[in-house]
Design a protein around this nucleic acid. Sequence first.
DNA 1: GCCAACGTTGGC
DNA 2: GCCAACGTTGGC
Length: 156
Amino acid sequence: MRYWLMKSEPDEVSFDDVLSAPAQTVAWFGVRNYQARNFMRDAMAVGDGVLFYHSSCAVPGVAGLAEIASGPYPDATQFDPSSHYYDPKATQETPRWISVDVRAREVGRYLPLAEMRTVPALESMVLLQKGSRLSISPVTRSEWDAVVELVRAREA
DNA sequence: GCCAACGTTGGC
DNA sequence: GCCAACGTTGGC
């Protein structure tokens, strides 16, 4: 069992969107970074914990708890010329990019990035390292536990 | 909108 | 294989 942080722009897919999706499950599409892709392909397993993070928005932060709900499969958007994520170098025979399904697990208090930066237990998180831009990053068990405690708390 | 940091591309 | 130029990410 591993733990991950996955960034989504809420204008595209928010945690509320996941909650209102069928089976509270969405396909994680649009990853176009090899390191993030390789995490999905090689290291994730069904049931792994996911911190669903909202990026590129007014108040970035962890919006909810989720879990990996499928193994890897080809990201359909790479084949779609009308998609922002179209990749002309990808073919059905040799797909380059993959998706996994992500299922919402628990709604908590919204945990802003600015607050995370003040929590000593989180200071080693990949997310918080200078220059870190990975859209998918590993989270340690202790970091996961600390975030879960924070999002279950009534207030900051 | 700015800009630091990082990733990718492509000429050589 | 080097590395300059360019593109992207994402907080602020």
